[in-house]
Amino acid sequence: MNENKAAAYRLGYITLAILAVLTIIEFFAAIYLGSLVFLFIIAIIKAAVIIQNFMHISRLWREENH
């Protein structure tokens, strides 16, 4: 239980770090590259990370045990 809890909180930190790094990359990529496709790809990755880690989309297919 405690291990699961620690892992869940850890997932939060990791996700936030990924999102922060991608947002900074996105900001500077817009200034120096100006590529629409690159900015789209970063936005899609950020959205996928949130949908998977924060919104728990996989729970839609999971059997509940409570």
Binding site: E26, F27, A30, A43
Partner: peptide, 11 residues
């Protein structure tokens, strides 16, 4: 996440 680059960064 999609609105931010569309409004501020793209173009």
């Amino acid at each position: 996440i999609f609105f931010y680059p569309a409004l501020y960064l793209m173009g």
